[in-house]
Amino acid sequence: MSDTQLFEGAGDEEIRRPLMEKVIAISFIISVLGTVGLGVTYWVGGQPQVEGGFLFLALGGIGVGIVSWGKYLVPQGPYVQERHEMRSAPEDVDAMHASLSRGLGQVGRRKFLLRLLGGAVGVFGLINLFPFLRSLGPVPGKSLFVTNWKHGSELVTADGRTVLASDLEVGGVMTVFPKGFEGEPSNAIDQVILVRAADYDLVTRPGRETWGPEGYLAFSKVCTHAGCPVGLYQELTQQLLCPCHQSLFDVLTGATNVFGPAPRPLPQLPLYVGTDGVLRSQAGFDEPIGPGFWERGA
């Protein structure tokens, strides 16, 4: 700490800058007025812009004042201070090594006890980590593989209205849920985008011959990329676009991913039209919906 003596007593000469003193005084006065304005604004009910403006004056006045004071009215030097290398003197380092080794020797001699201690702490950590993690949430189990869609699920809108095959015009689009699961939290997983791409039966892919009655195609609305709702339907090109990362899915070929980062098509929900004219699902999805995870394959 001896280095600080270098400039002690230096720079005590008086700095005279009347103009600066005036500027600083004005700054502080601006601050006071700003604070008063702020108080009045609060008193009468507050208004964001006026509050922001007065806060700016109140804080800025103090800030400019203090900085100017520190910059123009007190000595600036420059002063010089020595610095030392961080490492300590060799004799101190040696003494540290000696102390460290002495302690280590006293403890490390009892190897068996040391191992036992390590074991005890390790077991404690491991075992207690488990309930801590386990209390946080359930294990996923099969929940990422299933939705609430099953054979005969009625398609309903978010407010529970049953969707009839006559409801959508060609070029229409709608978000639907299995009846009874239109509320939270299941609607996050079960959401399906229903598109009417034609007025005749559509086959998106071999093996899906009956899935698109009267031109109705239904796909999981959860993007296979990062899980956003694929709510953006471009009617002329008959493509679904994900608003988050712009993955593009081609509806007529079974929502195949044609552009952007999405690695898989949106799973298609097989539909049929009941005798009552209500749209229903033939079965649940034939693959897990949404983004990928370790436990699923292709």
Partner: peptide, 30 residues
């Protein structure tokens, strides 16, 4: 090290800068 001492020059400047930072962000906020 060549520069200004912590007390008072640097302390005043740095302290004032806190208020200036607050003022600018308050103006944005408003």
């Amino acid at each position: 090290v060549v520069g200004i001492p912590f007390w008072p020059a640097y302390a005043l400047q740095a302290g004032g800068f806190f208020f200036i930072t607050s003022a600018v962000i308050a103006a944005l906020g408003g």
